[in-house]
Design a protein around this nucleic acid. Sequence first.
DNA 1: CTGAAAGCGCTTACAG
DNA 2: CTGAAAGCGCTTACAG
Lengths: 343, 343
Amino acid sequence: MDTRRPTIADVAKRAGVSKGLVSFVFNDKPGVAAPTRVRILAAAEELGWQPDPVARSLSTQRAAALGLVVRRDPTVLAADPFFPAFMAGVETALTERRQVLVLSLVPDAAAETATYRSLAAHRRVDGVLLTDLRHDDDRFPLLAELGLPAVCVGRPDVAGAFPVVNLDDAAGLRSAVDHLVGLGHRRIAYVGGDVGMLHGRRRRKSFLEALARHGLDPVGVVDTDFSAAAGARAVVELLAGAVLPTALVFASDPMAVAGLAVLQRQGVQVPRDCSVTGFDGMDLGRHLHPALTTVEADPLAWGRAAATVLLRLLDDGRADDLELPSAALVLRSSTAPPPDPPG
Amino acid sequence: MDTRRPTIADVAKRAGVSKGLVSFVFNDKPGVAAPTRVRILAAAEELGWQPDPVARSLSTQRAAALGLVVRRDPTVLAADPFFPAFMAGVETALTERRQVLVLSLVPDAAAETATYRSLAAHRRVDGVLLTDLRHDDDRFPLLAELGLPAVCVGRPDVAGAFPVVNLDDAAGLRSAVDHLVGLGHRRIAYVGGDVGMLHGRRRRKSFLEALARHGLDPVGVVDTDFSAAAGARAVVELLAGAVLPTALVFASDPMAVAGLAVLQRQGVQVPRDCSVTGFDGMDLGRHLHPALTTVEADPLAWGRAAATVLLRLLDDGRADDLELPSAALVLRSSTAPPPDPPG
DNA sequence: CTGAAAGCGCTTACAG
DNA sequence: CTGAAAGCGCTTACAG
């Protein structure tokens, strides 16, 4: 019994054709007579043969792999519900296409750059998914230099060399503000994320704009690094301010959870004395006391879409931008009318 | 200007040697004269050449990639602090070795099997990291059939074909129980995880043994699937029982958080009326009110160790098991003496 | 200690 | 519509 795995030559011999023909069939090239095609497919099937991606890579110069380089502190990453779902979505798109996801978790900017360089130099991936887009993002010039195709997960702030798969945060934040104002809140504060990241920056802007549309100014705005610790500190700071907010809008769920704890610790009851909204739809939020009102997106769909668009870019040399359904407010029990409604 | 990337032939020509010699130098084979070696290295350096992993793979039949297939619901995965840190640890071990991590997130058993088969059939990875070990784990026969090397992250329940990198949970659980008993608790209940998973099963056993050493029986034991929702349900169930626990030991932090909320919702104050301990060291736990007493391991070190051992196995054909420092109890504020100490 | 050559398993012009 | 051959960029016996 031959334990050696079959090669294209075995299939060719069995089908009574040349290797080239077999290759043509498996690459959907035109010009193979239907009966021949059937014979070849049957031979491959019988032998259990599939093209070897490594050999194919050497010929085609394509890796059949997509890269995702995540530069985040593992602790912050662990608290974030986005990535696992996003990756699962990427996965669903890749599997059908016999592609693979190469993941790299890096601690800092230097490691990030080194990783992209290494991925490109060794052609380990054909393209990359760009998440956590930053203001003046140095990955754009880097990828241009490396000639590595990419898609932007979220809208970049520069005219793009790369296709964009966007999911609008603003609408969700607007609903959160509208909801609070509708409840009667006038003294609303915001605990934002990392403004070096575009989504952090945009959520902040969306909050301020939404508030302004009601003719309101924020009672306080604190920028953070998205960590729970920073969220907690921000609340301490806001509570020490001159005018106490009756509602707190957070740019992420982990911060909202930590903020909630600070409020409770200081004897502020949520939502009776102060309302709280989060952002991200962390599963744990629904199991808190009180359950967290938050803004939820669909990161799984986002991941699938981003991978699909990147694959399209690689195949066709171009791909259209894609706009996904917006993030939406999920009402739970951390919001209520303010303690002393005006009027 | 030549934009074509250099190949081994270019390096050989520049150094005035054959391609074989260059290859020997870059694969640390003996038998290259020192001066020649230096000349070759210099030529490669000047040209900025490094061996192309794809071409190398085709010759060596090694992928220079390790696989991690995670079969978990994205929601449960998102709540778990283990994986991001574990992967970051894997990363640190791989980078130095010019290896890459191929990650696959799969929803169910069928997809899991298909993924391992595909990874093996296409030689996309040289070996895999086995996490979330299960009782009677079907991955062992599968990997044996596929001839895919692996290392076990945690101790399997069968005599192993694969090296084991273990981190003992039992000690941490024991400290949690000892701590509670030392505080005066006698009515302790346990909210466990998925007993289909070995760590779920072992934590349960460790809890029961630790309790038995104090001559105590649990007031209740509930198995779950490790999800926050199940943790919440378990607490509802325990609170409806005949004898109320004064302390709850949870097999994971997300369950502990959800359980905490249920207690609070039912007017049970933590830790005054009931103490709570978690498991895993989720960062958010430290920012809760009350901050969660938990059992913490070092998943980053675990990831690095597991990858290192797998690489050793691939290089040498064998590798010794490795035992890491045990998980340890981290005291915070969710534990206190029981409301009515006996005696 | 070194060189020339075959081979890894594909793809893709090129010729017929 | 089909075949023979070169080439992708390495590694590794084999011969000297």
